[in-house]
Design a protein around this nucleic acid. Structure first.
Lengths: 137, 137
DNA sequence: CCCCATTTGTCCGTATGTATC
DNA sequence: CGATACATACGGACAAATGGG
């Protein structure tokens, strides 16, 4: 697969798609390092900005995690704890607020589960660590 | 609040944090326009790239929506439909894959609810349109 | 400890395209 | 039509963090 600069789809989206495929196919497993930005600019014959925007997309999808001076790695697939959703409760999925992300130590691209029971304050759970269950009756 | 170029946190993350605060505090309500890129580069004394990456983060969080040639606005808070979570089912929150985002016509920064019942294939619901409910017994 | 190569972060200049007013 | 504003894309340059020797 290669990049088509004349395509209607932006170059950086094409790059993100290519890398996402390689990750989802298991070619780049959890913990594996992605090629460096310099490497990707050479391999695809594109500018660094396109590469960095592609990385930004993958981070926002929770697929990878970038550390300055080190590189970008495929995120580990999280082990989720099973939590019971109480009777009469409801739940939504959304992105965390700034405070929530700091307090729950959430990476970019990690949603939260907001559980409401009646009129009381909502409970917020990290979306990458929790699996909600409604038991069989 | 200002920007500290010598902080260990990247400038673009700081800018995103500042703008997020102003949005969450209600200073920038739903529908309100954010300052233009040029304006922000001047106000904070930073470069374009930092501003654009900050905007990219806020978009990825579903907080704002950018229209080319017009500007960036705070997104309206979505109305959610109530859907019952079946007995014996479980649910997780995660970001959609590229294919899911296209097929479900999801905006940037919108997570999905993945509902599993037994060993059958999972059902995926848009996180900004659905509220899962477990009825009172 | 420092040195060094690697890698990402940041800024700048430039250019073209596209959408809105 | 022009002015404005964002989107995409390339190039160069330097700063800062990491990790290995």
């Amino acid at each position: 697969m290669t990049i088509d600069p004349r395509s209607h789809t932006p170059v950086y989206v094409q790059v993100a798609d290519l890398l996402r495929e390689r990750i989802e196919a298991g070619e780049l497993g959890p913990g594996a390092s992605l090629p460096s930005e310099a490497r990707l600019t050479q391999e695809y014959g594109i500018g660094r900005e396109a590469v960095r925007m592609a990385m930004s997309i993958l981070r926002s999808e929770g697929l990878v995690s970038t550390v300055r001076g080190h590189g970008t790695r495929v995120r580990e697939t999280p082990q989720r704890q099973r939590v019971e959703l109480p009777a009469g409760a409801s739940v939504i999925a959304r992105m965390p607020t700034g405070r929530e992300r700091r307090e729950l130590h959430l990476d970019e691209g990690v949603p939260v589960l907001e559980i409401r029971r009646g009129k009381s304050k909502a409970e917020v759970q990290p979306g990458d660590q929790v699996e909600l269950v409604r038991p069989s009756d």
